[in-house]
Nucleic acid binder design. Sequence first.
DNA 1: TCCATTTAGTTCGCGTTGTAGACTAAATAT
DNA 2: ATATTTAGTCTACAACGCGAACTAAATGGA
Lengths: 384, 384
Amino acid sequence: MTLPVRHDSMRARNLGVVLDAVRRGGPQTRAALAERTGLTKSTVSKLAGDLIEAGMLAESGPARAGERGRPGVEVVLSGDRVAALGCEVNVDYLAVCLLDLAQRVRFTRRRGQDNRGKPAKRVLAQLRTLAVEAMAEARRLGLDVAGAGLAVSGPVADGVLLTAPNLGWRDVGAVDLLGLPVETTLGNEASLAALGELWFGAGGQDFLYVSGEIGIGAGLVVGGELFHGTRGLAGELGHVVVSPDGPRCRCGGAGCLETAAGQEAILTAAGDVATVAELLARLENDDELAVKACGEAARALGIALTSTVNLLDLDRVVLGGIYAPLFGWLAPPIERVLADRLVKLRSTPPTLTASQLGGQAATLGAAGLVVHQVLADPTRFLPR
Amino acid sequence: MTLPVRHDSMRARNLGVVLDAVRRGGPQTRAALAERTGLTKSTVSKLAGDLIEAGMLAESGPARAGERGRPGVEVVLSGDRVAALGCEVNVDYLAVCLLDLAQRVRFTRRRGQDNRGKPAKRVLAQLRTLAVEAMAEARRLGLDVAGAGLAVSGPVADGVLLTAPNLGWRDVGAVDLLGLPVETTLGNEASLAALGELWFGAGGQDFLYVSGEIGIGAGLVVGGELFHGTRGLAGELGHVVVSPDGPRCRCGGAGCLETAAGQEAILTAAGDVATVAELLARLENDDELAVKACGEAARALGIALTSTVNLLDLDRVVLGGIYAPLFGWLAPPIERVLADRLVKLRSTPPTLTASQLGGQAATLGAAGLVVHQVLADPTRFLPR
DNA sequence: TCCATTTAGTTCGCGTTGTAGACTAAATAT
DNA sequence: ATATTTAGTCTACAACGCGAACTAAATGGA
């Protein structure tokens, strides 16, 4: 439903507009901000003044214009007051990061451990230990933690992780189990990684992030915003059908992408390789079977992506998860399929990129989500 | 970019909020509107007063509550002042409709004619004749035409129809060629039909509208809004891959849905039937080949929809275009495929519905789009 | 019948907000 | 030096929504 605007929400919104303009445009003078936002100089001055007083903006010294006229003073996002926490549970590690409002990473902690089959309660308690460390560091730095984002590898609804096939979990109240003293937002790993790629990677404003793990998830970013779908369950790329009569899939269907390009399918096809690291080693030695396995997976990915591109009108795809290290072997065949199948429909096939953030994408996205909530409505952190 | 809020836009927005609440909730008292919108009684009173003065709302008599207290007076959308035009060029007909602000259809005109291969300029001039008739009728009824929507069967960008395979058109500046004296918005037929289904059919707030014609398009509605994709080219369902090694498709790919379930594929498989009407006749006579052709097409549709549902998280699919009359023969096999393939991933497979609007969906959607623009910001039609 | 009660809608003074334009500040060009 | 240009602040002002008081119109009970 469309929300009404009142005086207070007008103010909240305009403060957010100013902050967001600074985030997008980097250090800028008040005059430039007025120009860019459409607000008047005096309004921007007042808003910026309040934000500086609240410690969310800071003056960063004179802007050397070299041109005529009084040089302006640029304002920047200040990372000295507010921060956000990003957390992630994955199959083989736990991770947290602390991100300040200026989007600088102030602290990270990662703990490699196999979480498969372990009880959710215990794993999340271990993650809490890391989170508490991060919050202690925040206090030491004089930062308020505005909230936390929690990335889990499975579909999510109302703070509950519905299923995590690779962890063997079902219906886990992850936010409650993590039990942080700040508001915690639960999100799907692929979605949050997509946001991480958006804000910290080379994703641009519109792209599909593909997260290759045991399952294959995807996060769609359109116009700089995440697409959620009806109930927030969008992104099950792993069960797009790539060969209707293909092998049966655990979802009940057959010939799903996951059966052709999921981690297990690739490792098996490469000759029952045990780990992705091992697979990589073989690929680097030009192991024929391994290369062939990647080629097969890539062709299946190419087909699924063709469908997706046609449906959603994408011009950029970012490959993450295990696909990032395998990028060199996957990208060429995928690109060939895309080019072949999309010639007539679009002038250029979508660009393929490997995720630059590695295992950090999801935690960065999770923390970034909170940062962006604060930037969009900073009233919580204003005096009075 | 996030837009700032100023006093005038605050007012515009709140007027829109009130109108939208009336549209969604039907006739309501001012008190109920205040409750629903979150604005105060006095504000709603003032806004409603202005809207009544402008002829966009009207008092519809006392609300019989039967309960204690003074009975309120309900306000309704008034269709006596503003209207919108919806136009459509399709393969075998031209159509226009005139829709008032209360979303009542005040005039329709349809002209059956084969437009294949004819020059766009001539066809659009013919459509203009119909549109001018509709605008004359509007003038006769004392209605201001706020704008027009134009539906065409092909991808659209910046007022230009990029390609219309079934008409044999390329890069047609359709808005300019139509040359109406009101602002005209160009839209893809499937997208606009989806909006028609949203506002006038039984679509609910979240669904995928599938338009079966020579090509197969789709319009996705999420949370009561159309999903546009990066450049507004989303919805090419026809080129989702359903059998990677299937027959070649005119898009350059192979095994696209269109090659299995497009109008021509079905007619050919049914034994080179000439028209959909003829196919229907055969189906009603239980012609074995025709029934089998529909079954094949339905299975392909089922596979494409499985992929789509997994990607986009849908729980309702509306079948339109030629699929609407064929619904009885298509739906059961599609439902079987969806049920089989989605068992484990979602509690219930998506509901399948036939479009109730027939060939009217796109014109209604096109006109509705304009009506909704006016409802969202009615300032243009306010005095002063 | 009368009056308390309840709900609808209007009126009016108030506080908050952004705006426009005058004004001050600080640079460059001549 | 002085004019010019641009940045930023200050102040009077108007628009808006808010809230409380008020009027209006119904029901229900004595």
